[in-house]
Write a protein that binds this DNA or RNA. Structure first.
Lengths: 368, 368
DNA sequence: CTGAAAGCGCTTACAG
DNA sequence: CTGAAAGCGCTTACAG
C-alpha cells in the first residue's frame, strides 16, 4: 500500500518522445519526420522507404505530437466546446454523452461547460464560458443551452463563427439542430387513432411560441389525415397558468410540478369533453397526469391513453410505463458533430441546411 | 439573414493581444509584463507604478495569456480529465455537472470522456482516453467509471499520478471518494423505526462485495440501536439471480429490469415474513417494488413502507414518490476537486485521507 | 528528395 | 529594478 504510494512519488514519469527523438532514431531531419508523422495528406516528397523507417521509429518511441506546440504554430486544437445549462439534466445528459462519442470519432475532445450553476448561488456563466473557449482556441462550439436562459448568443457567434446550436434560441442564420415537434405529435396522434381512440386531446404548455405552435400544427394535420374532427375544446393550453414545468427545489432536493394545472387539464379534457387519449407536453406532464388520473379513479390506458414527449429516463419507471417520443439524441449529436466538422473545414452550410430537423421516434409502452 | 452569414465570412476575428503588445503599450519588456500579468504570487522586483501601468495596458488590450504557449513552457494546462462510463446516466450526470462547476472555481476546465460507447457498437475506450489525457497534458484525472467496467486503472495511475477515483474499484492507496452505504442504510432503518415499523426488510443485489457488505453492516447496526431484533429471513439477497439491475436495450430504447426477482423478494419479505417496510438496493429496485406491490394489492406506504437509494431523477415521479437517500453529489464533487487540486500542488493526501466517505442524506417523500 | 532555420507566445535564468 | 535572449516542440517557407 505505502509502497505503491512511494513508487509513485519517486519514479519520474517517462518523458514523452519528441519529434527530434524520432528523427534522430530514423536518421532524418525534423522536417521530414514531421511531414511523415504529422501531416494529414499524402506527401510525395519523401521516399516510401524513408517514410516507413520514420513510421517505425515513431511507433518504437510511442511518439505523439505535442498538441500545445501544434496549436502554437497555428494548427487546430482538436478541442470542441460544449455549452449546456445543466449537464446533469437527463434531457441533455445523453446529448452530452453522444456528442463526446461522436467527437472522439473525429479525433476531437470535448470541453464541457455548464452555463448555469446551482441556483442556490445563481450565476449565469454563459459569457465567461465564451471567453474561456476563446482563450483555449477551441475549433468550434456546440450551444445546447435552453432558450429561456440568458446569454449573449451574438457575442458567442462573433467569437466562434463555428458554432452549432441545439434546441436553443440561437441566432437567425446560424446552424441549428431542432427536434421536429410537429412530427412528434403527428406520430402520437396516428398511433392513438390506430388503436381506436376517437377523442384525442392535447395538453401543452402554450400555443404562442413557434415551437409550441408546431405541436398544434402537427396535431391538426394528423387528426385530418386520420379523418377525425378537430375539436378545440380538446386542446388544453397551460399558458394562463404560468410556466408549467418541473422545477427542482435545491433546498429539499425534490422536483416539484404544479399538479393543480394537471387537474384542470383532466377536468377540461376528460371530464367536460370525454377525451379517451391525451398527448402530453412532455414526460413530466405525462407522469403528473398518470398520478392525478389514478387518484381520480380514471384508468390508463383503458379509460384514457397517454403519450409523453422526450423519452425521459423516467418513462420506463412510471406505472404504467409511458408511451412517449424519443428525441433521437444520438442522431442529433451525429448531425451536430458533422455540421461543426464541415464548418471547421471551411465548408459553411448552405442556407437551406442551417436548420436541420431531427425526427423523433415513437416508443410504445403500456400507457397506450 | 444572408448578410449576417456574409459578415461572418469576410470579417476576420480580431487577433488576441500578445504579451509583447501589452509590453509595448506599457513601454516595458516582455519579462516584466509577464511577471506582472501571468505570475501568481507577489513579485517584489517590479515597482508598483510600473506594475499598475502594465495591468492597465493588459486590461486595455483585453490580454489573456495563450495557454498553449504556457503549456509548452512547462506550466500546467488548467485542464482536468473526467472519465465516466456514460455521462448520460443520471446517476453520474449530476456528478459531471458539479465537478465542472467546482473545477471552474479553481480556474480549470474539464475535458469529458465517456469510456463506454453505445454497446450496439461496443468498445471500451478506457485505455484510449488515458492516452488522450496524457497527450493533452491534463493536470489531473477524475475516474468515475463504475467498478464493473474493464480498464487498466494501474496504467491510468502510472500515466496520471494525480488521479482521484469516485465509486470506482480504483487502486489500493489511490485517493478515492465513496458514498457511505452503511450510513445510508442506518438512516433508512432509523427513519422507518421512528415511523413505527417493526419488521424492516432489506432487499439487496448481493452480500459478498465489500460495498454490499457495508449495507448489511449498517442494517444490523441500526436495528440493534433501535432495539429491533435481526431476522435474517428479512434480508433478501439477489445474488443467486445474477446481476439484478436496470439495463437499457439499445434496440428499443427501453430500460429493462428483472421483475421476476422483485416478485421473489416480495414473496420472501412480505409474504413469508410479514415485512412492514423494505429498504431497497436502489431507486430502480424501489420503483420495480412499487409496481409489483401494487399489482399484488399491497399498498405503499400503509401496508409496506419503501426506501430507495440514490435519489435518482425518477424518485419524484413514481407513484407514490419515493423516500430515498441522496448521494450528495455536490459534496462529492467539491471533495474530489479539492483533493485533486491539493495533489496538483504537490500535497499528496496522507494515508488516512485516501478514502473519503461522503455522507448520504435521507429525502423523505410519500413511500414511507 | 532532404536539412537548417525561423517563429508561434510564453517563462525564466542570466546579464546588466 | 529591468531587458535581451534562450528555449519549450512543433510547422513551414526556404535553401540546397
Amino acid at each position: 500500500m505505502s509502497l505503491q504510494r512511494l513508487d509513485r512519488e519517486t519514479t519520474a514519469l517517462p518523458r514523452p518522445a519528441r519529434l527530434i527523438d524520432v528523427a534522430r532514431l530514423a536518421k532524418v531531419s525534423c522536417s521530414v519526420a514531421g511531414l511523415v508523422l504529422n501531416k494529414g495528406g499524402g506527401n510525395s516528397r519523401v521516399s516510401e522507404a524513408t517514410a516507413e523507417r520514420i513510421r517505425q521509429a515513431g511507433k518504437a518511441l510511442n511518439y505523439h505530437p505535442n498538441p500545445a506546440a501544434r496549436l502554437l504554430r497555428g494548427k487546430r486544437s482538436y478541442t470542441l466546446g460544449l455549452m449546456v445549462a445543466s449537464a446533469g439534466d437527463p434531457l441533455r445528459s445523453f446529448l452530452v454523452e453522444y456528442i463526446d462519442v461522436e467527437a472522439a470519432k473525429s479525433g476531437c475532445q470535448v470541453l464541457i461547460a455548464n452555463t448555469v450553476g446551482n441556483p442556490k448561488v445563481y450565476s449565469n456563466r454563459f459569457d465567461t464560458v465564451v471567453e474561456d473557449f476563446t482563450r483555449r482556441r477551441v475549433d468550434g462550439v456546440f450551444c445546447a443551452v435552453h432558450h429561456y436562459w440568458e446569454g449573449d448568443r451574438a457575442a458567442l457567434l462573433a467569437a466562434h463563427p463555428n458554432t452549432v446550436f441545439y434546441e436553443d434560441r440561437g441566432i437567425v442564420g446560424a446552424p441549428v439542430v431542432l427536434v421536429d415537434r410537429a412530427e412528434a405529435v403527428r406520430l402520437a396522434v396516428r398511433h392513438l387513432a390506430q388503436r381506436g381512440r376517437q377523442r384525442i386531446g392535447l395538453a401543452v404548455m402554450g400555443v404562442t411560441r413557434p415551437e409550441h405552435r408546431a405541436r398544434l400544427d402537427g396535431y391538426r394535420d394528423e387528426l385530418a389525415a386520420q379523418g377525425l374532427a378537430v375539436d378545440t375544446r380538446l386542446v388544453f393550453n397551460g399558458e394562463p397558468f404560468g410556466l408549467v414545468c418541473a422545477m427542482k427545489d435545491h433546498q429539499t432536493g425534490k422536483w416539484d410540478f404544479p399538479e393543480i394545472v394537471i387537474d384542470r387539464a383532466i377536468d377540461q379534457l376528460v371530464g367536460d369533453n370525454s377525451a379517451d387519449a391525451i398527448v402530453a407536453h412532455d414526460d413530466f406532464w405525462a407522469a403528473a397526469l398518470l398520478r392525478r388520473l389514478r387518484a381520480r379513479g380514471i384508468r390508463v390506458p383503458s379509460d384514457v391513453a397517454l403519450v409523453g414527449y422526450s423519452n425521459h429516463y423516467l418513462a420506463d419507471w412510471t406505472d404504467p410505463p409511458l408511451t412517449t417520443l424519443d428525441l433521437s439524441h444520438e442522431a442529433a449529436a451525429r448531425q451536430m458533430v458533422l455540421m461543426l466538422e464541415q464548418m471547421i473545414h471551411g465548408r459553411a452550410p448552405a442556407p437551406d441546411e442551417w436548420r436541420v430537423m431531427i425526427q423523433p421516434k415513437l416508443i410504445v409502452r403500456e400507457s397506450t
